[in-house]
Amino acid sequence: MITFDKVTKNYGNITALSEITFSISQGEFAFLTGPSGSGKTTIIKLLLREITPTSGTIKIGDVDIKKLKPDKIPILRRRLGVVFQDFKLLPDRTVFENVALTLEILGEEKKSIPKKVKDILAITELLDRANLFPAQLAGGELQRAVIARAVVGKPDLLLADEPTGNLDPTTSSQIMKLLKTIHQKGTTILMATHNAGIVNEMTQRVISLKKGKLIKDEQSGKYPHKD
């Protein structure tokens, strides 16, 4: 599904990632852990093709995303679902419209959109919030709306960048439960986090980074660092 082969990313003189190599198979759930500045977000940004690696190869499926032409980047992104720490919902659209947006971008048939949106809002327990605007939602609801938007198009891969970073422990636990449900339905998930509690509780694969280097890659791993 994802292959990182000796990937290095430099920002001027600063090395954000150094010779990173790992791969994630279809249907896996993997945590990307490490303290702030360890390179987690850089990996997410590379996968989204927001930035390109200084050296090395990144493949999603068979596609070498470094070689993608600019007009093909949206097509790559449509195969991915993304959950951001700061939500990134469109403020002037309701929850329903935000979620429907993904399907509209995917070119989904107009008639089938409402049902698909309602289905995912039911899973994320947001049906009663469908017509509210982001400013009217609580933190956990916002994050559930973002997850709904990310998975409604049934992406090959769900990228979650610190999805619980702004949430209290109870809400974080609800979000993780939701991600687990989505994973059980067959979605590959790569989640960047520095929340040791969540990582230790889930007992999934853990890829640990420190100062841009991969220091550990364990199946059913634990959080290795104390921040």
Binding site: L48, P74, V82, K88, D92, L101, T102, I105, R149
Partner: peptide, 16 residues
């Protein structure tokens, strides 16, 4: 700007 950035990240085309 922010809205445009979000649309970019979720795969909207340039024309979108």
């Amino acid at each position: 700007r922010e809205e445009i950035e979000i649309l970019n990240l979720i795969g909207a085309s340039k024309w979108d």
